[in-house]
Design a protein around this nucleic acid. Structure first.
Lengths: 261, 261
DNA sequence: CCATGTAGAATGGTCTTACCATTTAGGTTG
DNA sequence: CAACCTAAATGGTAAGACCATTCTACATGG
Protein backbone atom coordinates (compact mmCIF):
# COMPACT_ATOMS: atom_id res chain seq x y z
CA UNK A 1 0.00 0.00 0.00
CA UNK A 2 0.93 3.63 0.26
CA UNK A 3 3.40 5.03 2.74
CA UNK A 4 2.72 8.35 4.42
CA UNK A 5 5.74 10.19 3.16
CA UNK A 6 5.37 9.43 -0.52
CA UNK A 7 3.08 12.35 -1.27
CA UNK A 8 3.39 15.95 -0.15
CA UNK A 9 0.67 18.62 -0.19
CA UNK A 10 0.61 21.11 -3.00
CA UNK A 11 -1.00 24.43 -3.66
CA UNK A 12 0.36 25.77 -6.93
CA UNK A 13 -1.81 27.10 -9.72
CA UNK A 14 -1.70 23.72 -11.40
CA UNK A 15 -2.20 21.42 -8.45
CA UNK A 16 -3.77 18.66 -10.50
CA UNK A 17 -0.79 18.22 -12.78
CA UNK A 18 1.60 18.50 -9.88
CA UNK A 19 -0.21 15.72 -8.07
CA UNK A 20 -0.34 13.61 -11.21
CA UNK A 21 3.42 14.00 -11.51
CA UNK A 22 3.97 12.98 -7.91
CA UNK A 23 1.91 9.83 -8.31
CA UNK A 24 3.52 9.09 -11.66
CA UNK A 25 6.95 9.45 -10.11
CA UNK A 26 5.92 7.07 -7.33
CA UNK A 27 4.83 4.55 -9.93
CA UNK A 28 7.94 4.86 -12.09
CA UNK A 29 10.06 4.78 -8.96
CA UNK A 30 8.53 1.50 -7.92
CA UNK A 31 7.00 2.88 -4.73
CA UNK A 32 3.68 1.66 -6.09
CA UNK A 33 3.73 -1.49 -8.16
CA UNK A 34 1.32 -2.60 -10.88
CA UNK A 35 -1.78 -4.26 -9.51
CA UNK A 36 -1.68 -2.21 -6.36
CA UNK A 37 -4.51 0.17 -5.53
CA UNK A 38 -4.21 3.88 -4.93
CA UNK A 39 -6.02 5.33 -1.93
CA UNK A 40 -9.57 6.42 -2.63
CA UNK A 41 -10.17 9.89 -3.96
CA UNK A 42 -11.44 11.01 -0.59
CA UNK A 43 -8.27 9.75 1.08
CA UNK A 44 -5.98 11.31 -1.51
CA UNK A 45 -7.87 14.54 -0.94
CA UNK A 46 -6.56 14.43 2.62
CA UNK A 47 -3.05 13.27 1.79
CA UNK A 48 -2.60 16.17 -0.60
CA UNK A 49 -4.62 18.59 1.48
CA UNK A 50 -6.72 19.61 -1.46
CA UNK A 51 -10.22 19.35 -2.91
CA UNK A 52 -11.58 16.27 -4.55
CA UNK A 53 -11.90 17.97 -7.92
CA UNK A 54 -8.18 18.47 -8.08
CA UNK A 55 -7.60 14.84 -7.23
CA UNK A 56 -9.98 13.76 -9.94
CA UNK A 57 -8.16 15.89 -12.51
CA UNK A 58 -4.88 14.31 -11.52
CA UNK A 59 -6.31 10.80 -11.76
CA UNK A 60 -7.80 11.67 -15.12
CA UNK A 61 -4.35 12.52 -16.42
CA UNK A 62 -2.94 9.23 -15.18
CA UNK A 63 -5.88 7.35 -16.62
CA UNK A 64 -5.32 9.02 -19.95
CA UNK A 65 -1.65 8.12 -19.88
CA UNK A 66 -2.65 4.54 -19.31
CA UNK A 67 -0.97 4.34 -15.92
CA UNK A 68 -4.08 3.52 -13.92
CA UNK A 69 -7.49 1.96 -14.36
CA UNK A 70 -10.45 2.88 -12.20
CA UNK A 71 -13.43 0.83 -11.14
CA UNK A 72 -16.62 1.84 -9.45
CA UNK A 73 -18.27 0.43 -6.37
CA UNK A 74 -16.93 -0.94 -3.12
CA UNK A 75 -13.42 -2.31 -3.67
CA UNK A 76 -13.30 0.03 -6.61
CA UNK A 77 -10.67 2.71 -7.04
CA UNK A 78 -7.57 3.39 -9.09
CA UNK A 79 -5.37 0.40 -9.80
CA UNK A 80 -1.87 0.68 -11.22
CA UNK A 81 -1.68 -0.76 -14.71
CA UNK A 82 1.09 -2.27 -16.71
CA UNK A 83 1.72 0.34 -19.38
CA UNK A 84 0.85 -0.95 -22.81
CA UNK A 85 2.37 -0.05 -26.09
CA UNK A 86 -1.05 0.97 -27.31
CA UNK A 87 -0.98 4.24 -25.40
CA UNK A 88 2.20 5.60 -26.88
CA UNK A 89 1.08 4.37 -30.27
CA UNK A 90 -2.09 6.40 -29.95
CA UNK A 91 -0.05 9.41 -29.03
CA UNK A 92 1.99 8.94 -32.16
CA UNK A 93 -1.07 8.53 -34.33
CA UNK A 94 -2.53 11.69 -32.86
CA UNK A 95 0.62 13.55 -33.78
CA UNK A 96 0.52 12.27 -37.33
CA UNK A 97 -3.09 13.31 -37.77
CA UNK A 98 -2.75 16.75 -36.32
CA UNK A 99 0.54 17.65 -37.95
CA UNK A 100 -0.69 16.61 -41.39
CA UNK A 101 2.40 14.56 -42.05
CA UNK A 102 2.95 13.69 -45.66
CA UNK A 103 1.72 10.12 -46.23
CA UNK A 104 4.78 9.51 -48.35
CA UNK A 105 6.98 10.27 -45.39
CA UNK A 106 5.14 7.73 -43.33
CA UNK A 107 5.51 5.18 -46.09
CA UNK A 108 9.21 5.88 -46.35
CA UNK A 109 9.59 5.42 -42.65
CA UNK A 110 7.57 2.24 -42.65
CA UNK A 111 9.59 0.79 -45.47
CA UNK A 112 12.85 1.54 -43.70
CA UNK A 113 11.60 -0.11 -40.54
CA UNK A 114 10.45 -3.14 -42.47
CA UNK A 115 13.93 -3.73 -43.82
CA UNK A 116 15.44 -3.60 -40.36
CA UNK A 117 12.82 -5.90 -38.96
CA UNK A 118 13.39 -8.33 -41.79
CA UNK A 119 17.05 -8.72 -40.95
CA UNK A 120 16.38 -9.06 -37.25
CA UNK A 121 13.46 -11.40 -37.71
CA UNK A 122 15.54 -13.75 -39.84
CA UNK A 123 18.43 -13.60 -37.42
CA UNK A 124 16.48 -13.98 -34.20
CA UNK A 125 13.09 -15.43 -35.04
CA UNK A 126 12.63 -18.99 -33.89
CA UNK A 127 11.57 -21.75 -36.26
CA UNK A 128 8.15 -21.73 -34.63
CA UNK A 129 7.75 -18.03 -35.20
CA UNK A 130 8.78 -18.31 -38.82
CA UNK A 131 6.36 -21.10 -39.53
CA UNK A 132 3.64 -19.19 -37.72
CA UNK A 133 4.28 -16.22 -39.98
CA UNK A 134 3.98 -18.41 -43.05
CA UNK A 135 0.79 -20.03 -41.80
CA UNK A 136 -0.75 -16.65 -41.01
CA UNK A 137 0.01 -15.32 -44.46
CA UNK A 138 -1.60 -18.40 -45.99
CA UNK A 139 -4.62 -17.93 -43.78
CA UNK A 140 -4.86 -14.35 -44.99
CA UNK A 141 -4.55 -15.46 -48.60
CA UNK A 142 -7.33 -17.97 -48.10
CA UNK A 143 -9.51 -15.34 -46.45
CA UNK A 144 -9.03 -13.03 -49.39
CA UNK A 145 -9.79 -15.65 -52.04
CA UNK A 146 -12.88 -16.97 -50.31
CA UNK A 147 -14.94 -13.80 -50.38
CA UNK A 148 -16.65 -14.60 -47.10
CA UNK A 149 -14.54 -12.28 -44.96
CA UNK A 150 -15.34 -8.64 -44.33
CA UNK A 151 -12.94 -5.89 -45.16
CA UNK A 152 -12.36 -5.15 -41.49
CA UNK A 153 -11.40 -8.75 -40.87
CA UNK A 154 -8.86 -8.69 -43.67
CA UNK A 155 -7.29 -5.46 -42.50
CA UNK A 156 -7.15 -6.87 -39.00
CA UNK A 157 -5.41 -10.00 -40.20
CA UNK A 158 -2.91 -7.89 -42.08
CA UNK A 159 -2.16 -5.90 -38.95
CA UNK A 160 -1.74 -9.02 -36.86
CA UNK A 161 0.69 -10.27 -39.42
CA UNK A 162 2.77 -7.13 -39.10
CA UNK A 163 2.78 -7.38 -35.32
CA UNK A 164 3.90 -10.98 -35.43
CA UNK A 165 6.58 -9.93 -37.86
CA UNK A 166 7.79 -7.18 -35.53
CA UNK A 167 7.70 -9.48 -32.51
CA UNK A 168 10.19 -11.75 -34.24
CA UNK A 169 12.88 -9.16 -33.62
CA UNK A 170 12.59 -9.98 -29.91
CA UNK A 171 12.91 -6.27 -29.33
CA UNK A 172 9.73 -4.69 -27.99
CA UNK A 173 10.57 -1.30 -29.44
CA UNK A 174 10.01 -2.59 -32.93
CA UNK A 175 6.69 -4.02 -31.93
CA UNK A 176 5.70 -0.69 -30.50
CA UNK A 177 6.82 1.26 -33.54
CA UNK A 178 4.95 -1.13 -35.78
CA UNK A 179 1.75 -0.61 -33.82
CA UNK A 180 2.25 3.13 -33.92
CA UNK A 181 2.85 3.20 -37.65
CA UNK A 182 -0.18 1.04 -38.29
CA UNK A 183 -2.36 3.33 -36.24
CA UNK A 184 -1.10 6.21 -38.30
CA UNK A 185 -1.83 4.23 -41.43
CA UNK A 186 -5.19 2.86 -40.44
CA UNK A 187 -7.29 5.24 -42.47
CA UNK A 188 -5.30 4.44 -45.55
CA UNK A 189 -5.19 0.68 -45.04
CA UNK A 190 -8.94 0.42 -45.26
CA UNK A 191 -9.08 2.38 -48.46
CA UNK A 192 -6.33 0.28 -49.99
CA UNK A 193 -7.92 -3.01 -49.13
CA UNK A 194 -11.11 -1.99 -50.83
CA UNK A 195 -9.28 -2.36 -54.10
CA UNK A 196 -9.56 -5.98 -55.19
CA UNK A 197 -6.49 -5.87 -57.36
CA UNK A 198 -4.43 -4.44 -54.54
CA UNK A 199 -5.45 -6.92 -51.90
CA UNK A 200 -4.96 -9.99 -54.09
CA UNK A 201 -1.53 -8.77 -54.96
CA UNK A 202 -0.71 -7.68 -51.41
CA UNK A 203 -1.46 -11.00 -49.79
CA UNK A 204 0.44 -12.88 -52.47
CA UNK A 205 3.41 -10.63 -51.83
CA UNK A 206 3.06 -11.21 -48.11
CA UNK A 207 3.18 -14.96 -48.71
CA UNK A 208 6.34 -14.64 -50.73
CA UNK A 209 7.95 -12.41 -48.17
CA UNK A 210 7.08 -14.75 -45.32
CA UNK A 211 8.40 -17.71 -47.24
CA UNK A 212 11.73 -16.01 -47.84
CA UNK A 213 11.95 -15.01 -44.20
CA UNK A 214 11.28 -18.58 -43.18
CA UNK A 215 13.97 -19.61 -45.63
CA UNK A 216 16.30 -17.07 -44.05
CA UNK A 217 16.94 -15.25 -47.29
CA UNK A 218 17.04 -11.55 -46.41
CA UNK A 219 17.88 -10.43 -49.92
CA UNK A 220 14.86 -11.99 -51.53
CA UNK A 221 12.61 -11.04 -48.64
CA UNK A 222 13.65 -7.40 -48.88
CA UNK A 223 13.23 -7.53 -52.60
CA UNK A 224 9.58 -8.49 -52.16
CA UNK A 225 9.16 -5.76 -49.60
CA UNK A 226 10.68 -3.24 -51.94
CA UNK A 227 8.26 -4.25 -54.65
CA UNK A 228 5.40 -4.00 -52.22
CA UNK A 229 6.19 -0.41 -51.34
CA UNK A 230 6.53 0.53 -54.96
CA UNK A 231 2.98 -0.65 -55.57
CA UNK A 232 1.83 0.92 -52.34
CA UNK A 233 3.16 4.32 -53.34
CA UNK A 234 1.33 4.14 -56.65
CA UNK A 235 -1.95 3.29 -55.00
CA UNK A 236 -1.64 5.91 -52.30
CA UNK A 237 -1.12 8.60 -54.88
CA UNK A 238 -4.61 7.83 -56.13
CA UNK A 239 -6.18 8.37 -52.73
CA UNK A 240 -6.75 11.98 -51.88
CA UNK A 241 -8.63 13.31 -48.88
CA UNK A 242 -10.20 16.69 -48.35
CA UNK A 243 -11.45 18.23 -45.14
CA UNK A 244 -13.81 21.09 -44.40
CA UNK A 245 -13.83 23.68 -41.67
CA UNK A 246 -16.41 26.15 -40.49
CA UNK A 247 -16.47 28.81 -37.83
CA UNK A 248 -19.15 30.91 -36.21
CA UNK A 249 -20.00 32.91 -33.12
CA UNK A 250 -22.66 33.09 -30.42
CA UNK A 251 -22.48 34.23 -26.82
CA UNK A 252 -24.70 34.89 -23.86
CA UNK A 253 -24.25 37.19 -20.93
CA UNK A 254 -25.09 35.46 -17.65
CA UNK A 255 -25.28 37.37 -14.41
CA UNK A 256 -23.97 34.94 -11.83
CA UNK A 257 -20.89 32.77 -11.51
CA UNK A 258 -23.03 29.76 -12.29
CA UNK A 259 -23.84 28.24 -15.61
CA UNK A 260 -25.72 30.20 -18.21
CA UNK A 261 -28.49 27.75 -18.93
CA UNK B 1 -15.48 30.41 -33.20
CA UNK B 2 -17.63 27.41 -32.35
CA UNK B 3 -20.77 26.43 -34.17
CA UNK B 4 -23.75 25.19 -32.24
CA UNK B 5 -24.00 21.76 -33.74
CA UNK B 6 -20.41 20.67 -33.22
CA UNK B 7 -20.92 19.34 -29.71
CA UNK B 8 -23.70 17.15 -28.40
CA UNK B 9 -24.64 16.57 -24.75
CA UNK B 10 -23.46 13.42 -23.08
CA UNK B 11 -24.33 11.49 -19.97
CA UNK B 12 -22.36 8.27 -19.98
CA UNK B 13 -20.35 7.02 -17.02
CA UNK B 14 -17.26 8.61 -18.49
CA UNK B 15 -18.59 11.94 -19.64
CA UNK B 16 -15.24 13.71 -19.32
CA UNK B 17 -13.46 11.42 -21.74
CA UNK B 18 -16.38 11.44 -24.11
CA UNK B 19 -16.32 15.22 -24.19
CA UNK B 20 -12.57 15.25 -24.64
CA UNK B 21 -12.97 12.95 -27.63
CA UNK B 22 -15.63 15.18 -29.15
CA UNK B 23 -13.47 18.26 -28.86
CA UNK B 24 -10.43 16.36 -30.09
CA UNK B 25 -12.37 15.16 -33.11
CA UNK B 26 -13.44 18.74 -33.79
CA UNK B 27 -9.80 19.81 -33.69
CA UNK B 28 -8.51 17.00 -35.90
CA UNK B 29 -11.42 17.52 -38.22
CA UNK B 30 -10.50 21.14 -38.70
CA UNK B 31 -13.71 22.49 -37.17
CA UNK B 32 -11.51 24.34 -34.74
CA UNK B 33 -8.17 25.56 -35.99
CA UNK B 34 -4.96 26.18 -34.04
CA UNK B 35 -4.92 29.58 -32.39
CA UNK B 36 -8.64 29.60 -31.97
CA UNK B 37 -10.20 29.71 -28.51
CA UNK B 38 -12.60 27.19 -27.07
CA UNK B 39 -15.68 28.52 -25.28
CA UNK B 40 -15.17 29.18 -21.60
CA UNK B 41 -15.68 26.36 -19.16
CA UNK B 42 -18.96 27.83 -18.05
CA UNK B 43 -20.17 27.97 -21.64
CA UNK B 44 -19.02 24.45 -22.43
CA UNK B 45 -20.86 23.36 -19.33
CA UNK B 46 -24.03 24.55 -21.02
CA UNK B 47 -23.21 23.22 -24.49
CA UNK B 48 -22.66 19.75 -23.10
CA UNK B 49 -25.40 20.03 -20.47
CA UNK B 50 -23.11 18.89 -17.72
CA UNK B 51 -21.29 20.11 -14.62
CA UNK B 52 -18.17 22.19 -14.72
CA UNK B 53 -16.09 19.47 -13.09
CA UNK B 54 -16.69 17.18 -16.05
CA UNK B 55 -15.67 19.92 -18.44
CA UNK B 56 -12.50 20.54 -16.48
CA UNK B 57 -11.57 16.87 -16.58
CA UNK B 58 -12.06 16.85 -20.34
CA UNK B 59 -9.93 19.95 -20.80
CA UNK B 60 -7.29 18.42 -18.56
CA UNK B 61 -7.03 15.47 -20.90
CA UNK B 62 -6.64 17.72 -23.92
CA UNK B 63 -4.08 19.82 -22.09
CA UNK B 64 -2.14 16.71 -21.22
CA UNK B 65 -2.22 15.56 -24.83
CA UNK B 66 -0.80 18.91 -25.82
CA UNK B 67 -3.82 19.87 -27.91
CA UNK B 68 -4.73 22.99 -25.94
CA UNK B 69 -3.13 25.60 -23.70
CA UNK B 70 -5.07 27.46 -21.06
CA UNK B 71 -4.58 30.95 -19.70
CA UNK B 72 -6.12 32.66 -16.73
CA UNK B 73 -7.87 35.99 -16.51
CA UNK B 74 -10.13 37.88 -18.85
CA UNK B 75 -9.45 36.82 -22.45
CA UNK B 76 -8.08 33.67 -20.90
CA UNK B 77 -9.37 30.24 -21.78
CA UNK B 78 -8.35 27.20 -23.76
CA UNK B 79 -6.54 27.89 -27.02
CA UNK B 80 -5.91 25.25 -29.65
CA UNK B 81 -2.22 24.51 -29.95
CA UNK B 82 -0.07 23.22 -32.74
CA UNK B 83 0.85 19.75 -31.60
CA UNK B 84 4.55 19.41 -30.95
CA UNK B 85 6.72 16.37 -31.27
CA UNK B 86 7.71 16.79 -27.65
CA UNK B 87 4.43 15.32 -26.43
CA UNK B 88 4.65 12.08 -28.26
CA UNK B 89 8.33 11.84 -27.38
CA UNK B 90 7.48 12.15 -23.72
CA UNK B 91 4.88 9.47 -24.10
CA UNK B 92 7.49 7.22 -25.60
CA UNK B 93 9.99 7.95 -22.84
CA UNK B 94 7.33 7.18 -20.26
CA UNK B 95 6.72 3.84 -21.90
CA UNK B 96 10.42 3.02 -21.89
CA UNK B 97 10.76 3.87 -18.22
CA UNK B 98 7.73 2.00 -17.03
CA UNK B 99 8.19 -1.09 -19.16
CA UNK B 100 11.82 -1.47 -18.10
CA UNK B 101 12.91 -1.92 -21.67
CA UNK B 102 16.34 -3.43 -22.05
CA UNK B 103 18.81 -0.60 -22.78
CA UNK B 104 20.43 -2.83 -25.36
CA UNK B 105 17.17 -2.95 -27.27
CA UNK B 106 17.02 0.80 -27.32
CA UNK B 107 20.59 0.95 -28.54
CA UNK B 108 19.86 -1.56 -31.24
CA UNK B 109 16.90 0.47 -32.38
CA UNK B 110 18.85 3.69 -32.32
CA UNK B 111 21.65 2.20 -34.35
CA UNK B 112 19.25 0.94 -36.98
CA UNK B 113 17.64 4.33 -37.24
CA UNK B 114 21.01 6.01 -37.54
CA UNK B 115 21.87 3.93 -40.58
CA UNK B 116 18.66 4.85 -42.30
CA UNK B 117 19.07 8.50 -41.49
CA UNK B 118 22.61 8.43 -42.81
CA UNK B 119 21.53 7.25 -46.22
CA UNK B 120 18.68 9.72 -46.39
CA UNK B 121 20.75 12.60 -45.07
CA UNK B 122 23.39 12.04 -47.70
CA UNK B 123 20.83 11.70 -50.44
CA UNK B 124 18.63 14.62 -49.47
CA UNK B 125 20.61 16.93 -47.21
CA UNK B 126 21.53 20.22 -48.83
CA UNK B 127 25.10 21.43 -49.00
CA UNK B 128 24.29 24.00 -46.36
CA UNK B 129 22.93 21.37 -44.02
CA UNK B 130 25.96 19.17 -44.49
CA UNK B 131 28.40 21.97 -43.78
CA UNK B 132 26.32 22.98 -40.77
CA UNK B 133 26.59 19.45 -39.45
CA UNK B 134 30.35 19.51 -39.84
CA UNK B 135 30.64 22.89 -38.16
CA UNK B 136 28.50 21.78 -35.28
CA UNK B 137 30.61 18.70 -34.69
CA UNK B 138 33.71 20.83 -34.67
CA UNK B 139 32.10 23.20 -32.21
CA UNK B 140 31.33 20.24 -29.99
CA UNK B 141 34.91 18.98 -30.28
CA UNK B 142 36.20 22.39 -29.30
CA UNK B 143 33.83 22.54 -26.35
CA UNK B 144 35.04 19.17 -25.11
CA UNK B 145 38.74 20.02 -25.44
CA UNK B 146 38.45 23.39 -23.75
CA UNK B 147 37.22 22.22 -20.35
CA UNK B 148 35.14 25.35 -19.87
CA UNK B 149 31.81 23.79 -20.76
CA UNK B 150 29.56 22.03 -18.31
CA UNK B 151 28.45 18.47 -18.81
CA UNK B 152 24.89 19.54 -19.46
CA UNK B 153 26.04 21.86 -22.21
CA UNK B 154 27.96 19.09 -23.92
CA UNK B 155 25.07 16.66 -23.74
CA UNK B 156 22.81 19.36 -25.11
CA UNK B 157 25.16 20.01 -28.01
CA UNK B 158 25.25 16.31 -28.75
CA UNK B 159 21.47 16.18 -28.84
CA UNK B 160 21.23 19.18 -31.10
CA UNK B 161 23.64 17.48 -33.43
CA UNK B 162 21.43 14.43 -33.62
CA UNK B 163 18.37 16.53 -34.32
CA UNK B 164 20.13 18.38 -37.11
CA UNK B 165 21.19 15.03 -38.45
CA UNK B 166 17.63 13.74 -38.42
CA UNK B 167 16.29 16.92 -39.99
CA UNK B 168 18.52 16.31 -42.99
CA UNK B 169 16.24 13.47 -44.02
CA UNK B 170 13.57 16.09 -44.76
CA UNK B 171 11.11 13.66 -43.21
CA UNK B 172 9.68 14.90 -39.94
CA UNK B 173 9.04 11.40 -38.67
CA UNK B 174 12.73 10.79 -38.32
CA UNK B 175 13.15 14.00 -36.41
CA UNK B 176 10.41 12.97 -34.07
CA UNK B 177 11.77 9.48 -33.58
CA UNK B 178 15.20 10.91 -32.85
CA UNK B 179 13.78 13.18 -30.17
CA UNK B 180 11.87 10.31 -28.67
CA UNK B 181 14.88 8.04 -28.59
CA UNK B 182 17.01 10.73 -27.02
CA UNK B 183 14.45 11.31 -24.31
CA UNK B 184 14.54 7.61 -23.59
CA UNK B 185 18.30 7.76 -23.56
CA UNK B 186 18.69 10.92 -21.55
CA UNK B 187 19.53 9.29 -18.24
CA UNK B 188 22.22 7.25 -19.89
CA UNK B 189 23.71 10.03 -21.96
CA UNK B 190 24.62 12.03 -18.91
CA UNK B 191 26.37 9.10 -17.29
CA UNK B 192 28.29 8.34 -20.47
CA UNK B 193 29.50 11.88 -20.96
CA UNK B 194 30.92 11.93 -17.47
CA UNK B 195 33.57 9.57 -18.73
CA UNK B 196 36.40 11.65 -20.17
CA UNK B 197 37.70 8.87 -22.38
CA UNK B 198 34.25 8.28 -23.83
CA UNK B 199 33.46 11.87 -24.61
CA UNK B 200 36.78 12.61 -26.29
CA UNK B 201 36.36 9.55 -28.44
CA UNK B 202 32.67 10.20 -29.10
CA UNK B 203 33.12 13.73 -30.41
CA UNK B 204 36.02 12.66 -32.58
CA UNK B 205 33.87 9.92 -34.02
CA UNK B 206 31.08 12.42 -34.59
CA UNK B 207 33.47 14.62 -36.54
CA UNK B 208 34.52 11.75 -38.73
CA UNK B 209 30.94 10.71 -39.34
CA UNK B 210 29.87 14.22 -40.24
CA UNK B 211 32.80 14.59 -42.58
CA UNK B 212 31.90 11.42 -44.45
CA UNK B 213 28.29 12.49 -44.66
CA UNK B 214 29.36 15.82 -46.08
CA UNK B 215 31.55 13.90 -48.52
CA UNK B 216 28.51 11.77 -49.41
CA UNK B 217 30.22 8.53 -48.53
CA UNK B 218 27.56 6.39 -46.83
CA UNK B 219 29.80 3.37 -46.45
CA UNK B 220 32.46 5.15 -44.44
CA UNK B 221 29.89 7.13 -42.49
CA UNK B 222 28.07 3.99 -41.47
CA UNK B 223 31.34 2.37 -40.62
CA UNK B 224 32.05 5.12 -38.10
CA UNK B 225 28.55 4.78 -36.71
CA UNK B 226 29.00 1.07 -36.36
CA UNK B 227 32.20 1.60 -34.43
CA UNK B 228 30.47 4.16 -32.25
CA UNK B 229 27.77 1.73 -31.20
CA UNK B 230 30.30 -0.97 -30.47
CA UNK B 231 31.99 1.35 -27.99
CA UNK B 232 28.64 2.52 -26.68
CA UNK B 233 27.53 -1.00 -25.91
CA UNK B 234 30.70 -1.67 -23.97
CA UNK B 235 30.27 1.45 -21.87
CA UNK B 236 26.61 0.89 -21.18
CA UNK B 237 27.36 -2.57 -19.86
CA UNK B 238 29.39 -0.90 -17.12
CA UNK B 239 26.51 1.30 -16.04
CA UNK B 240 24.04 -0.50 -13.86
CA UNK B 241 21.14 1.02 -12.04
CA UNK B 242 19.22 -0.28 -9.08
CA UNK B 243 15.91 0.86 -7.74
CA UNK B 244 14.19 0.39 -4.39
CA UNK B 245 10.58 -0.11 -3.52
CA UNK B 246 8.73 0.00 -0.25
CA UNK B 247 5.14 -0.59 0.71
CA UNK B 248 3.07 0.01 3.80
CA UNK B 249 -0.49 0.46 5.04
CA UNK B 250 -2.61 2.89 6.99
CA UNK B 251 -6.27 3.76 6.78
CA UNK B 252 -8.90 5.81 8.55
CA UNK B 253 -12.62 5.36 8.75
CA UNK B 254 -14.54 8.60 8.15
CA UNK B 255 -18.26 8.82 8.75
CA UNK B 256 -19.50 11.25 6.15
CA UNK B 257 -19.16 11.59 2.41
CA UNK B 258 -16.76 14.44 2.94
CA UNK B 259 -13.04 14.35 3.42
CA UNK B 260 -11.53 12.59 6.39
CA UNK B 261 -9.36 15.35 7.72
C1' DC C 1 -4.90 65.93 -24.49
C1' DC C 2 -2.51 62.40 -22.45
C1' DA C 3 -0.92 59.52 -18.77
C1' DT C 4 -2.19 57.18 -14.79
C1' DG C 5 -4.84 54.73 -11.91
C1' DT C 6 -8.95 52.29 -10.58
C1' DA C 7 -13.17 49.55 -10.79
C1' DG C 8 -15.40 45.89 -12.86
C1' DA C 9 -16.02 41.91 -15.72
C1' DA C 10 -14.36 37.56 -17.53
C1' DT C 11 -12.03 33.43 -16.71
C1' DG C 12 -9.43 29.57 -14.84
C1' DG C 13 -8.45 27.29 -10.29
C1' DT C 14 -10.07 25.63 -5.98
C1' DC C 15 -13.12 24.09 -2.23
C1' DT C 16 -17.42 22.35 -0.24
C1' DT C 17 -21.49 19.85 -0.09
C1' DA C 18 -24.62 16.94 -1.75
C1' DC C 19 -26.58 13.23 -4.29
C1' DC C 20 -26.53 9.24 -7.55
C1' DA C 21 -25.00 4.56 -9.46
C1' DT C 22 -22.46 0.63 -8.88
C1' DT C 23 -20.31 -2.99 -6.53
C1' DT C 24 -18.98 -5.78 -2.74
C1' DA C 25 -19.62 -7.83 1.83
C1' DG C 26 -22.31 -9.38 5.28
C1' DG C 27 -26.36 -10.44 7.47
C1' DT C 28 -31.30 -12.04 7.31
C1' DT C 29 -34.93 -14.88 6.23
C1' DG C 30 -37.38 -18.55 4.04
C1' DC D 1 -28.31 -23.89 2.76
C1' DA D 2 -29.81 -20.76 -0.65
C1' DA D 3 -31.79 -16.67 -2.02
C1' DC D 4 -32.51 -12.17 -0.94
C1' DC D 5 -31.82 -7.77 1.04
C1' DT D 6 -29.30 -4.02 3.23
C1' DA D 7 -25.47 -1.17 4.25
C1' DA D 8 -21.01 0.61 3.28
C1' DA D 9 -17.42 2.05 0.09
C1' DT D 10 -16.29 4.24 -4.03
C1' DG D 11 -16.28 6.64 -8.38
C1' DG D 12 -19.25 9.97 -11.18
C1' DT D 13 -21.96 14.10 -11.40
C1' DA D 14 -23.94 18.47 -10.09
C1' DA D 15 -24.35 23.19 -8.18
C1' DG D 16 -22.74 27.04 -5.78
C1' DA D 17 -19.35 29.86 -3.92
C1' DC D 18 -14.98 32.15 -3.54
C1' DC D 19 -10.18 33.47 -4.98
C1' DA D 20 -6.39 35.07 -8.18
C1' DT D 21 -5.31 36.78 -12.45
C1' DT D 22 -5.89 39.41 -16.46
C1' DC D 23 -7.87 42.60 -19.55
C1' DT D 24 -11.02 46.52 -20.68
C1' DA D 25 -12.98 50.73 -20.02
C1' DC D 26 -13.79 54.52 -17.62
C1' DA D 27 -12.50 58.12 -14.51
C1' DT D 28 -9.17 61.21 -12.65
C1' DG D 29 -5.59 64.43 -12.50
C1' DG D 30 -1.71 66.65 -14.55
Amino acid sequence: MITDKIFVPVKAGRAGEEIALQIQAAILNGDIVPGEKLPSERELQCLFKTGRGVIREALQVLRQKGLIETYKGSKGGAYIKNLEVVNVSESFALFLKQSHTDPMHLIEFRESIDYIITDLAIARGTADEKSLLVRKTEALAKAVKGNGSSLETLVELDKDLNIIFAKMTHNSIFEWIMRAVQLGFSSMDNALYEDLEYRTYAVENWRNTAREIAASDPIKAKSYISYHYMILRKKVLLITNSSSLQVNDNHEQPDTDSACC
